[in-house]
Simulated scan of single mutants.
Amino acid sequence: MTLQTIAFEKREQLKQKPNSDQLGFGKYFTDHMFLMDYDEQKDWHNPRIVPYQSISVDPSAMIFHYGQTVFEGLKAYRTEDDQILLFRPENNMKRLNQSSKRMSIPEIDEEEVLHYLQQLIAIEQDWVPSAEGTSLYIRPVVIATDPNLSVEPSKTYTFMIILSPVGSYYPQGIKPVSIRVEQQYTRAVKGGTGTAKTAANYSGAYKAQEKATEQGLSQVLWLDGIEKKYIEEVGSMNVFFKIDGEVITPELNGSILEGITRKSTIELLNHWGIPVKEQKISMAELHAYYHNGKLEEAFGTGTAAVISPIGELIWENEKLVINEGQIGEVAKKLYDTITGIQTGKVKDRYGWTVEAASKTMNTSPSL
């Protein structure tokens, strides 16, 4: 790997950091951000760390008109001995490139960008909170910047990484959530953009989420876009069900996002000897398992919430209360193990964590 020289412009007056109990999710942003540019002649170039700021984009930039953009989400965690760890970040870089391929965006050098991210976190390490359940959320994003209204891929792009100290994704913390099964709207179909982390996948889900919120529910469970029959994923998570001692998760079918926490969950279950299958499962099948007493647990997996137990599913005006609305044994063990590895409290036997920064790292501007 040949690294480009990375420029560093230090912010003159640093921001006041929020208290850990005020963080919420994605409300505060650190002092600095990372930027890099692309054009066809220079490829990806001009990597730089600058003060967090607004960016200037032409009103005709293609991102505004055709939504050509991809993003990622990962976290940095502070350990008790003041190390700062990333959880499987190479998978995020790989998935960013997979999303870019689908959206006709030039790929990044995954190893190079991971190095730049580590440099950014080293500079911003004091922003990584230490309170229980907190972390530093990392949002890489690529936007198309060509000032051009032609319906074609942009020829120029901007890549950014912004950082945000966060608390729990759900205000109630790791407590079972209530979820509405969506039967009218469609998130994605095979051959579409469901496997890419791109903006429209999320904004297109707002209408269904509004209906769930009106009912006092946390999230939406999406069914397949063709038959409205098979379970796919929750709005911000992949989904798992423990049925008669076996864990089942919908198979990757070309419209489901390949979650990194999902992947880690499957690997842990296999390591523990808990049967786990990736397969199609219909809502009608799940409903039958519920009524014959075989649906034992349900939970979601994702970077934001890690493991989110599902206490209720609302389907066709029926409320399915799962495990008496309590956290299941498998979900709790997964949560404790994954968050333990992320924060250094549980030994990482799988090589999943990467050191991003420690109090002893050099954070001078000579990058």
Rank of each mutant, 00 (worst) to 15 (best):
H291L: 01
L367T: 08
R48Y: 05
F25L: 07
I84N: 06
L96K: 03
V346I: 14
E72H: 13
E233A: 01
P47K: 05
M1N: 14
T261P: 02
K175T: 15
Y66I: 05
Q172N: 14
P106R: 03
A304R: 11
E111W: 11
L217R: 14
R102W: 03
F8W: 13
L223D: 01
G325N: 08
A7T: 14
N92Y: 11
L313H: 01
A76D: 12
Q172W: 09
V181Y: 04
E214T: 04
K332H: 13
T156A: 11
W222V: 00
K197T: 11
N317W: 02
Q125H: 14
A284W: 00
S308R: 03
Y116T: 13
E355G: 08
T5E: 12
Q326S: 09
T249L: 11
R139K: 15
A331N: 00
A188K: 08
V276K: 12
A131Y: 13
N148W: 03
V247T: 04
S20T: 10
P275A: 06
I121P: 09
D244N: 13
I105V: 03
H291C: 01
V346T: 15
F241M: 03
V321N: 04
A196D: 02
V321M: 08
N238H: 09
E355F: 01
E324H: 07
K155H: 09
H291E: 03
G300S: 08
A188Q: 06
S130Y: 13
N46D: 15
I327G: 02
T158S: 12
S60T: 07
T186E: 06
I49D: 08
Y206N: 14
Y230T: 00
Y230D: 03
Y290K: 00
N362E: 10
W222T: 01
K242A: 13
I341F: 11
S178Y: 05
I49K: 06
A76M: 12
A122G: 14
S358R: 09
Q41M: 12
W315D: 01
K333W: 02
K27Y: 09
G192M: 05
G325M: 10
S255F: 01
E246F: 02
T261Y: 06
P153D: 05
A284K: 00
Q215V: 00
G194Q: 02
I281A: 05
E9P: 00
G216C: 08
T363G: 09
N91L: 15
V220W: 05
G300I: 02
V239D: 03
Q183W: 01
Q118T: 06
P309Y: 00
D82W: 10
H115A: 15
K359Y: 13
Q279D: 11
E312S: 01
Q183F: 01
G351R: 14
V234K: 00
Y52M: 12
Q219K: 04
R88Y: 13
L221N: 00
V276L: 11
